[in-house]
Design a protein around this nucleic acid. Structure first.
Lengths: 137, 137
DNA sequence: ATCAATACGTTATAGCATAACATCGCCGCA
DNA sequence: TGCGGCGATGTTATGCTATAACGTATTGAT
């Protein structure tokens, strides 16, 4: 099912190319992976990729996985996802599952309120093995 | 308060130096920051730092902050901390607050059980501003 | 004494990310 | 129409983060 997500029409050429690459990938891609995929389209420098990624992440069309130094397309077709998202990353096949948990969000919110911490961004990443890879083992 | 934590006696020289550097730092340090602090002790190569860090992290004496590519000493004096730990990282002063929340742990456990995912490691990092920095602003 | 396991030291290299500067195209507006 | 701002682009150079591959040294058990 790694195919045509709804693709916004107001992306620039580079942003579109980068998002396309992410959409068609079965697993997270590093900026340099993306660059290699897009050399045939005329992209040459890391910065071209990073700039596009910055915009995509800013708009929630892509996510950065901190523990991997890599990026994935947002799994939510219409990218309505607000707030906290958790990622489950399979070390076997590389697939990433994206989910939100309101209870966790609430707990973190409570903690922040109690300690006076102003949250700007939360990253939550689970590493392990997905059901399929466990079955295959 | 950034001083003498209980320091295990069975550390190697390099491990002790690295943990010492982390213990005395007011904020997370990158491996290269640590290297610079320890050149006077004769350390010269990144690998010497990374190897020590690997052991320290493995034993729970230090933690890696994925969103920072940096390391901190474990805040728990006796390092009894098991399971999931969340980190709140202040973008102002760099201070890191470490806490555990059993409810969050339970929620993640439930999610894993339901989807058949075998969790190996979880990272949870909150970026924002601490109460002190907000007051100072 | 020997062997295995672990730590150490060193050089080289791979992988991830941004600084700095010049150009171009688009759009609003005098 | 032309000016000016803004955001995207292209390019070169550089900096930061992490590991590969090799050899030596130390330790500890049998």
């Amino acid at each position: 099912m790694a195919h045509d997500h709804a693709m916004p029409t107001d992306l620039t050429r580079n942003q579109g190319l980068v998002l396309g690459a992410l959409n068609h990938a079965p697993a997270p891609l590093s900026a340099y992976d993306i660059l290699d995929l897009l050399r045939s389209e005329g992209l040459r420098a890391p910065l071209q990729i990073y700039r596009a990624l910055d915009k995509l992440v800013e708009r929630g069309l892509a996510h950065r996985l901190e523990s991997l130094n890599a990026f994935v397309a947002c799994a939510d077709e219409h990218c309505h996802r607000k707030g906290l998202i958790a990622f489950a990353i399979c070390e076997g096949c590389g697939k990433v599952d994206e989910f939100a948990d309101p209870v966790i969000e609430e707990r973190l919110g409570n903690w922040a309120r109690e300690t006076g911490f102003k949250t700007e961004r939360t990253t939550m990443e689970i590493r392990g093995r997905c059901a399929e890879c466990l079955k295959a083992a």
